[in-house]
């Protein structure tokens, strides 16, 4: 099971509940991680972090022992990252706040609403769509909505604007 993702700021590993960040250039080889929790942090294994080797609580406890910002962690549920107790020394709030900022910016990407000439409305991004008493959560995707009134699968476009005499003016 591959749970590591390489990024420009080191690597990250997740078990679905928390994400652990690994910044190799900060490691001073204090060795707390593998002495405490070899099941998760095993330098002889590739990938060297196995997020399913121990419980979330054990991983958090061990990451907090790292004396540098080589290992940091955060909850995947962003709500839970707001008020983290400072005893969690290696939570990203305290060690690598730049990681939180990055994610926040990624999430605030505006939704694009494009009016297509003689065509539909293309809405793309992350938004909620309400129609026919339904609520659809659209995440980093797009929908195409009818603008001519002739679609047979309302509110979505079905290409019928080409057959109808839709005048976009």
């Amino acid at each position: 099971m591959e749970s590591s993702i390489k990024s420009g700021r080191g690597r990250k590993y997740t078990n679905g509940e928390i994400t652990v960040y690994w910044k190799p250039e900060s490691c001073i080889h204090a060795s707390y991680c593998y002495r405490e929790l070899i099941e998760v942090f095993d330098p002889s294994r590739r990938p060297w972090v196995d997020m399913y080797g121990a419980t979330t609580a054990e991983i958090i406890r061990t990451v907090n022992m790292c004396p540098t910002d080589a290992l940091t962690w955060k909850w995947n549920d962003e709500e839970k990252n707001r008020d983290v107790d400072p005893s969690h020394t290696n939570h990203v709030n305290f060690r690598r706040p730049e990681l939180l900022k990055d994610e926040t910016e990624a999430q605030s990407e505006p939704v694009s609403v494009r009016v297509m000439p003689q065509g539909p409305l293309i809405i793309s991004g992350t938004f909620t769509l309400k129609y026919d008493n339904k609520i659809k959560e659209v995440e980093e995707s797009a929908v195409s909505l009818c603008r001519c009134g002739a679609s047979s699968r309302m509110p979505f476009c079905d290409g019928n604007h080409r057959k109808s005499d839709f005048k976009d003016d």
């Binding site: 939704v111 694009s112 609403v113 809405i123 992350t126 938004f127 129609y131 909505l145």
Partner: peptide
């Protein structure tokens, strides 16, 4: 991790499309 919705789009029955939130409208 679920992304936070940036806008609310509502197709009003027998009416227009209502859009509210962080959007860029282009035509």
């Amino acid at each position: 991790a679920r992304l936070k919705p940036q806008a609310e789009i509502e197709v009003i029955p027998e009416g227009p499309i209502r859009i509210k939130g962080n959007i860029i409208l282009s035509d």
